[in-house]
Design a protein around this nucleic acid. Sequence first.
DNA 1: TCCAAGACTTGCCCCTAACTGA
DNA 2: TCAGTTAGGGGCAAGTCTTGGA
Length: 953
Amino acid sequence: MSVFNHTLYDNDDDDTPLSFKRSSTSRPPPSKQEGSSANITYVRNPKAVASNQQRNGINGASRSPLPLKPQSTGSNPRPSGSVQPNSSVERSQKSNTVDKSKLRRPHVEGDKSDDSDDDKPLAFRKKPDTKLKKVDTGGENAYGSEDDHKPHGMNINSAKVASNNSTNKTVLLKTAPLKTLQPDDDSDDDHKPLVQRFNPAKRASNNSTNKPVLLKAAHKIVQSNDDSEDEKPLASRLPTNAAPKSRASTSDSEDEKPLSARFSRGTAGTSASISNSKDKLPSNNKGPNNNLSAPRNSVKRPSDNNNQTSSALKKAKSSDASASGSVKRESKDDDNNSVPVERKLTPGESSKSKPPVKNIVKKSPLSVKKDNKTFKTKTKKTMKSSQFSKSLRVPPGSGGGKKWSTLEHNGVIFPPPYNPHGVKMLYNGQPVELTPEEEEVATMFAVMKDTEYAAKKTFVDNFFGDWKKILGKNHIIKKFELCDFTPIYEWHLREKEKKKQMTSEEKKALKEEKLKQEEKYMWAVVDGVREKVGNFRVEPPGLFRGRGEHPKMGKLKKRIRPSDITINIGKGTAVPECPIEGESWKEVKHDNTVTWLAFWNDPISQKDFKYVFLAASSSLKGQSDKEKYEKSRKLKDHIHNIRVNYTKDFKSNDVSKKQIAVATYLIDKLALRAGNEKDDDEADTVGCCTLKVDNVTCVPPNKLQFDFLGKDSIRYFNTVEVELPVYNAIEEFRTGKKDGDPVFDKLDTTKLNHHLKDLMPGLTAKVFRTYNASITLDAILHEETEDGTLLEKIAVYQRANKEVAIICNHQRAVSKSHDTQMTKLNEKIDELKAQIDELNKDLGKVKRGKPLGNGADGKPKRTLAPEAIEKKISQIETKIEKMEMDKKTKEDLKTVALGTSKINYLDPRITVAWCKTHEVPIEKVFQQDDSCEVWMGNGCRAGFQILRVLASG
DNA sequence: TCCAAGACTTGCCCCTAACTGA
DNA sequence: TCAGTTAGGGGCAAGTCTTGGA
C-alpha cells in the first residue's frame, strides 16, 4: 500500500491535526492524496491561506512589524567591499554563474496564504512575497505559518534582500516586537527561517555566489585576504542569491544580502578576523582524515589473552536495576535458552506475531522504581517551572521510559586478532625486532604516514608516548626522530595493492565469508520485531583520530575485550555467547529503559561510552525521530511568543535575562548550536553559550562578525547585521573582558534550555536548528516548485537541501578529484565549442556550395545538408549547456555536505508532501530500501521510521 | 543546585557498490 | 566493457540534553 495512504501521523501528542498541508493551484494533488481524514494531508490550512491572502505587494515585508532596516537599496544588493574574489575558487565560481532560470521561481502572486515569516526558514524571511501558489487544499505546510505565528524579529527588507546577490553579504536580523505587526505587514521574516527571509528568487539566482569554506582547525592558516568562497564557512554563503547579473552589480549594501552572505563577506575581506581565528585552513585542506590510505582495520593484533580489564571502567548505569535487573557475568546456563536471533523471526513473522511498534514508547506500568522516580521528578519539575505543565510526556531517549518489553540479540563481533607481518622498521638506520604487540602499534602509525596526522606534533607525541609504554624503559627505541617506519608503510602499500588486484570473484568470496560470520550479529529482535543492529562490530584498536586540534589525537585506542563490554538483553532471554573463548562479558543488564544493546568505555576517554544501538532504520530510532520533528513542528506555534519574549529582554536590566535573550536570538537566527562546556582534554570548539570574546567582533554600526570553530572544528565565519539592541548587548557583554573570556558569562546551556522549556515544553536549543532547517526546506519547495520537468523539480529540491546545509554550516572537504573533474569538464566544453566553430564554417561553405575539404583525420568531410549541420550544432549546444550546469553544480556543492541535513534535519513529511503534490517519485529523493520493503529507506532514517511507525499503528 | 554520568543525536570522512557515459 | 563518478553505508568522533547523586 502506498505510504501516502497511511496515516502518517497519529498526532497523539499533538492537540491538533497535522497541519503540514499544502496545496497547489497549478497542479491539483492526486486524488489519492485526498484520502480519508485519517490520511495525512499536506494542505495548507484555511487560516494560513487567509493570512497569505492578506499579503500584499511583492515584498513580504509589508506585514512585518518592524520595517526592515534600511539596507542597501537598489538592485545591486552586494555589499561593498564585501567580496574579495581573490581566490581561484571564487573566480571560478563567478565565472560559473548559475542559470537560475533553470530553477523555477514562484511568481509573485498575491495568493500566498501564509505570510508569516515565522514559519519560514530564517533565510527566507526576508523574502518578498514571492508567493507560492497555494495548493488546492489550502492547508498549511508542515511548518505552516499562521498569522499569529508571524515573526516579528529578524525581518529583513525583502526588497533589499531581493536585490542581494553578492556573495558577501551581511544579514540583517531584526527582531521586531510582535505588537508591531500589522495585518498588512509583510514582516514575515520573523516567522521564517533566516534563509527564507530573503527573496527566494534572488536566492535562486545567487547560488553561484555561495561558496563553501571548509576550514578545519587542523588546517593551515588561511590567508586573511583570501576571499575564496571556498575557504569561507558555509554560513557566510547563506542566501546569497545574487543573480549572475547582480554579481556584477556593485551594490554595497550588505543589508540587502542574504544571511549566508552576510557572514563572511563584508568582514571576510577583513583578513584580520580570519587570521586571528584558530587554524583556519584553506578549504582545500582536508581534514585530518584526509589522505588516509590505510584501512582502519588493517592493523591487527595477536590473539593474546591480555585480560586488561579496565578496573577504571565505570558502571554504565547505577540505577538501571529499576527497570531491569543487572546481572554480572551471567551464567552460561542462560545461553542454553538462546536461539540465534536471526533464526527466531523472519521479518514477515515478526510483524505478524508481535505487538505494534508504536507501543514501545508507552510507559509501562511495570517500570521500576527508577521509572517512577524519574516520572515524579519530571512531573514536579514540569509543573513547577513551565506553563505548559500538561505536557508530561517522557521523550524517547531521555532514559525515563520503557523502550522495549523483549529484547534479543547476539551481542557483538570482535575484530580479528592482530596478525604480525614481520616487516622491520628502522631505528637509527638499523632494523629493529619488535614483538607483535609493539609491531601492531608501530604499524598503526606507519600506515598513517601520508596523512596530516603524521605531521602533527600532538599526534606524534601522543602516539610515541603510548608506544613507549608498550616498548618499555629498556627498549632500544628512545627517540621518535630516529624511527623510520617506511618499511612498514611500504609493506602496507603492497598489501593495499594486492587487495586492489584481487579478482571480483575473490572479492566476492571474501565478502560472502565476512557476511557469513557477521550475519548473526546483524539482527536483534525487539518486541518480537526483527530489527537491524547498527554498529555490531567492536571498534578495532588504533590511534585516535580526533578532529581539529584534539589534545588526545594519536593516543592508542586499546583493543576492546569482552571483559570491557556490558550487554543489555531482555530478562529471561538467552545472554549472547561471548565469541572469544575463555573470556566473558563484563556485565549483563536487563534495562528496558534504554535502547543500547551493549556498551564499553571509550578507551580514549574512560568517562565516555561507546554504545551499540539499533540501526537508523529501526522502529526505536524512527519513533525518536518522529518525536523530534513533532517537537520542531510545534515550535512554530510558539516561535512568535518566543521572539517577542527575547526581543523584550534585549534591554533587560537583568544581565542573565539579557544574555539568555541574545543567545536565543543568535540560536534562532543563525542556527547556532547550544555550546556546552568542554573539558580541557577536548578540542577547543565553541557554540553559542560558549562563544568567547575573540569569537565575536562588533562591526559598527550594527554588524557582528562571528569567527569560531564549531562542532568537528568546522569554522563558522559570518558577518551578520543584527538589531541594534543585540549589537549593543554584545558590545556590553564583551566590555571589560579579554580574548578567551566568555561572552555569555552568566549563561550556560542548562540555564538556557531551562528557560526555553518555560516557553514551550520540551524546547531546547537544538530544536531551533531542526525547525529552521525544515521550515527552510518547506518554504523553498513551496515557493520555487513549479510545473516543469522532473529534473527541474529535483533541482529545486536539491537547492532547498543546499540552503539548509548552508544554514546549518554543514561542510565537507573538497574531493580529491574535484580539480581534475573540473579541468576535464572545461576541456570537454572547449572541445565541443571548437566543434561548433567548425560546423559553422562548414555550414557557411555548404550554403555557398563550396566543398568542405578534409577533416582532422585527413579524410574528406562528408557533405551534409544545411539542416543536418544546424541540427548537429544545436545538439552540441544543448550538450554544452548541460555541462555548464554540471560544472556549476559541482562547484557550488563542492564544500557543501547535503547528507547531514537531509538525514537529521529535514522533516520527511515535507518531502513526502512535496513529492506527492508535484508527482515526484519519492525514490528520486530518498533511496529505496528493499530490505525494509518500504519506499523510504535508509537514506532517510527519519522518514522511513516515521512512516514505518505510523504504518504499524 | 551543581556536576558528572549516561544516553542518545549529529556530523564528517572513507570505502565501495551502483551508476553513467564513452 | 571499462573507467570515472556518485551516493549510500559504515565508522567513529563530537556534539546535546537528561538524569541522578552529592
